[in-house]
């Protein structure tokens, strides 16, 4: 690529022309095209989504491969490192806002809409609806129009508590890995990274089991009125973020095994770690607001 004619790290490395961005957006085009059709019952939509995702994955792989080799090739100076730090921080901030929308929905439902629907004013429309949160407690009716089958809620014990422990532990192992990296102990770093990744995977399995349990035994579904909607959307998007964070950590671990990163220059590692901690914090919010309260 350009700019490194003299072998030294450039003041600010600017990559030359690249086909990755346009290719990546072609991939996403097939994803959204297909998704819009698929959910409306067109079977080819599913293929389009799969094709688009595969395409996109390949492009991302190539893109990151280029970036990694630039990084390892010493093209990224101090300034670029700083850019990465800023960008990761603000990206995480935007993720916080995304979750904010769903937490707001939960708050609004509990504090405003469900009580209002069962309030004296709305007795005109829903005379039989008794608002209690969660909408399945004794004396409550699951939904104003009676369209929701009775269900049970998911208490904090034991699955969510186990998951809390898993995530908190993974935060600790990740920090140990980080310290080890800073101390130059690569073997220990890799070992603890693998532990972190595995903890993430176990979390996902436990959550999968939890969902199965909710559907099969508690009759708690995505369609269980506003309770089910907020419950599954919040925990589901969180689970998806765990998945993404786990992938990040996995790739970092593989890179560590290939000998990437040095004891004082390893932003890739730190960025993934920040993300993981963010996912952790969101979980704590969920654990308290969704499962306990």
């Amino acid at each position: 690529m350009s700019a490194n004619a003299h072998g030294a790290t450039p003041y600010y490395f600017v990559p030359g022309p690249s086909r990755h961005p346009v290719m990546a957006s072609i991939g996403l085009f097939f994803v959204i095209l297909g998704a819009g059709q698929w959910i409306n019952g067109a079977q080819w939509g599913a293929y389009s989504v799969a094709f688009g995702l595969a395409w996109w994955g390949i492009v991302l792989y190539q893109w990151f491969r280029d970036a990694v080799s630039e990084s390892e090739g010493g093209l990224y100076g101090h300034k670029i490192d700083l850019s990465f730090r800023w960008s990761m921080s603000w990206f995480i901030f935007s993720e916080v806002m995304f979750f904010g929308a769903f937490f707001t929905a939960l708050w609004w439902a509990r504090v405003h809409s469900v009580p209002a629907l069962g309030g004296i004013e709305n007795a005109l429309l829903w005379p039989d609806f008794k608002a209690v949160w969660p909408s399945v407690q004794a004396g409550a009716t699951a939904s104003p129009a009676g369209i929701v089958e009775p269900f049970q809620t998911m208490g904090p014990f034991w699955l969510p508590t186990i998951n809390t422990a898993l995530l908190l532990t993974s935060g600790v192992t990740l920090t140990i890995a980080h310290h080890a990296l800073q101390a130059g102990n690569r073997g220990k770093t890799i070992a603890f990274m693998w532990m972190t990744v595995v903890l993430g995977i176990v979390f996902l399995f436990v959550q999968g089991y939890e969902y199965a349990h909710a559907y099969a035994d508690l009759n708690l579904k995505l369609s269980s009125g506003i309770f089910g909607s907020t419950f599954f959307m919040l925990t589901g998007f969180h689970g998806f973020h765990v998945f993404v964070g786990m992938l990040m950590l996995l790739f970092i671990t593989l890179r560590l095994q290939k000998g990437h990163f040095t004891k004082d220059r390893h932003f890739g590692f730190e960025g993934a770690a920040w993300y993981w901690h963010f996912v952790d914090v969101v979980w704590l919010g969920l654990y308290i607001l969704v499962y306990w309260m």
Binding site: S94, F98, A109, S113, S143, L222, S223, I226
Partner: peptide
């Protein structure tokens, strides 16, 4: 991201049975 959240809820209300904006299921 907040807009993304809002239209995502619209999407799931349309297709996946959620009740974010449907009073019959407790939404608003």
């Amino acid at each position: 991201p907040v807009l993304a959240g809002a239209i995502t809820m619209t999407l799931t209300d349309r297709h996946f049975g959620t009740s974010f904006f449907n009073p019959a299921g407790g939404g608003d």
